[in-house]
Simulated assay, not measured.
Amino acid sequence: MGTPTTTWGVGDYPAMARLLMPAAEAVVAAAGVRPDDRVLDLATGTGNAAVLAAQSGARTIGVDLEPTLLALARRRAADAGLTADWRVGDVIRLPVPDDSADVVLSVFGVMYASDHDAAARELSRVVAPSGRVALAAWTPGDFLPAMGQVLAAYLPPPPAGSVPPSRWGDRDSVGRLLEAAGLRVTSAVPQRLHLSFADGDAATSLLIDTAGHIVAERNRLVAQGRWQAMRADLRSFVDDRGVTDGDHFRLELEYLMVTATPATTAAA
């Protein structure tokens, strides 16, 4: 499948992508994808939203930085008898022309852009004047952003001047971000995603194994004698945030579902 070029290709991210599929379904439904729509799925990963769009008969392009994930998306679409175009690219410099998408989607993807303002401008550039945008982003302080704070003591710091990805999951912040790029938010609705596990230990293992930025630091943390401490801190966090439901252990994750249109269209 090739060698990963980013930490997104390290570890078992596809296992997490499978758990996130309900959010992709919600985003595609919110966008109202129709047959023959030109759909662009940004930071597509293993292709959750892109595959759903292709299943709807849309002409779909999936873009991602990580070639190994795109290879999985390409195989997944082929196995399902679907046609889609998979392109390696960055959300701050998309490899597509202006006004080339009737629908732009991103499910927990564009929020991780290295430059949020540039990514928002790219959304605006590629969406057609009558097009629509639908995004999902984790809300500030909820499970995954808070998990990042727990792990901060063990992982390399973010680049200087970087902005938290959950900026895209805050109604006011994302509204200002998109408005500055020429897009108007038409709805911003919190949604919840429920992940079920056998127990807290299984949940902790999956969170570690599917996070490439954690897996990439394993050798260093083991050598420093800190790997087990990191795991124990994460397990404690998981236990605090989790819900025991009969024979299952559940994590509840909140995200913001955002839809937007070009501002000139919204004002018309």
Rank of each mutant, 00 (worst) to 15 (best):
P262F: 01
S196I: 00
H213Y: 15
P67S: 09
A50T: 01
T46Q: 13
L151F: 08
S130L: 02
D98V: 02
T265E: 12
A263L: 11
L40M: 11
D240W: 02
V51M: 10
T259H: 09
G45R: 01
D239R: 14
R171H: 09
L193C: 08
T210E: 05
M147F: 02
V185Q: 00
T264I: 13
G89R: 04
T3E: 13
D64V: 02
V174D: 00
D98L: 06
W138K: 02
I214R: 05
L65F: 03
F108S: 00
R93N: 15
A113G: 10
A223L: 05
S100H: 07
L234C: 10
R192V: 14
G242F: 01
A268R: 15
A43G: 06
A160N: 12
V163M: 04
L256F: 00
H248G: 14
S114C: 12
P159C: 06
F143N: 00
T186E: 13
A58E: 06
A31I: 07
G182R: 03
E254H: 11
R18G: 14
P97N: 05
P156V: 11
I61R: 12
R226S: 11
H248L: 15
D36V: 13
G161M: 08
D247Y: 07
R167P: 05
P4R: 00
H194W: 11
L135N: 02
R121M: 08
E25I: 10
A216W: 06
D240G: 15
L251A: 09
D245P: 01
A188D: 02
V39D: 10
V33N: 09
N48E: 14
I214E: 04
S124L: 02
T5S: 14
D247Q: 11
R192P: 09
G62Q: 04
D247T: 14
T261D: 10
V27K: 00
A84N: 06
I208D: 01
V33F: 10
P262G: 05
R125L: 11
L42D: 01
F237Y: 12
P190L: 07
R34C: 09
G45V: 07
D239P: 05
T204A: 08
V238S: 01
P164R: 06
A202D: 13
A266Q: 07
P165W: 00
A101N: 03
P165Q: 09
V63L: 05
A43E: 03
A153F: 13
S106T: 07
A160V: 12
W168D: 04
G81N: 05
V39L: 11
A80H: 08
V174A: 09
R18I: 15
R125P: 01
D12M: 02
A26C: 11
D98K: 05
G182Q: 02
A180D: 15
V243N: 12
V63A: 07
